[in-house]
Amino acid sequence: MNAQETGAAPPFLRNPLVAHDLLVVRGLIRSLTARALDALSAVFLLFVVIAALRHGLAGLPVAYRSIAISVLPGIPATLLLVVLLRRLEFFRTQSVVANAALCRRPAAAYVGLFQLAASIAFSIAFFAPDGPAVVLSMASWWIALFVAFAIARGLRQVLSWLDTYGQDRLAQIVEARGSDRVRRAAMLAVAIAIATVSAVMSPTTAGIVSVVSVLAWGLFFVPISYPVIEYEGMVGRPLRDSLAGRLGYLAAATVGFAGASLASFDWRVGASIVSVGVALAAYKMLEILLARALGGSRVQFALAACLFVLVSVALVQPLAFAIIAPVLAYWLSRLARKRLWLIAS
């Protein structure tokens, strides 16, 4: 007897994998929107990313623009594929929906559906109302996806072969592929590649600064955001490792973009990255410290008040800011009892 016969509601689209992750996404969005400042930051970031990238693309010469539309969708398509394949592996080994994940059709539908939703959202957000550009972007997304999928399949077979037959040195490489160090190196490589391509394709300084800063924001903000750390806590990753991992990503991205700014010989690119990185790190440290002393929503209120005072003072009287800032930091560290930022070093 199946669900239909008993009158019970089947999982979304009859696919437990899709239903599972839609529920997870809904829960994460709820936890994000439960904190007013985080919700505002996320919405603000989203708008800034879209607006800046649209502006940067619109400013490109026609030939470069076509290349950008053809190349750019490949990056999110590949990243999303990696995430979805890792997710499927998790489902197969450690989830209640393993039965569905081990079946080819639901697994393919799971990957296909999320890719479809993401490709439509991406193409419309960045290229609408330019119809041909939207179509080209969608086509590029799916071509890149199939190429990445073919590479992933080939790579999996190679790794499986190495797992079985590899000698010590090769086996070490295979084992290292899951380590944080390798992931940070991969992030660094991606950051360098993105920034270098941006620098080459958008030769105007303003274009480089905007694109690079926005990408830096995205790479910094998303991995160190509160829901991610909370989620990692739920799945048993210690806070220390979680924070160290986030800061590792942050460092890798910073080095990558700083390298690209050096390659473009423009100090303003580097300055924008450093200022964005410092501001975000300061924000997170303040948030962590306040969370040790205060509870719940008061953290966000106190943080907003602190930032307002600091920025106002810094704008009006830099000298007063230089005196107040260390005093405030000392007071917060006393309140927090533990200097939590040390654990990330």
Binding site: P11, L23, F90, M234, G236
Partner: peptide, 22 residues
């Protein structure tokens, strides 16, 4: 499945529905 790998954002009811809708 390991308890620490249960999806935090879901309720037990939502989790069970994924296994058996009835």
């Amino acid at each position: 499945v390991p308890a620490e790998n249960l999806p935090g954002p879901l309720t037990a009811q939502q989790l069970f529905r994924l296994i058996e809708p009835g």
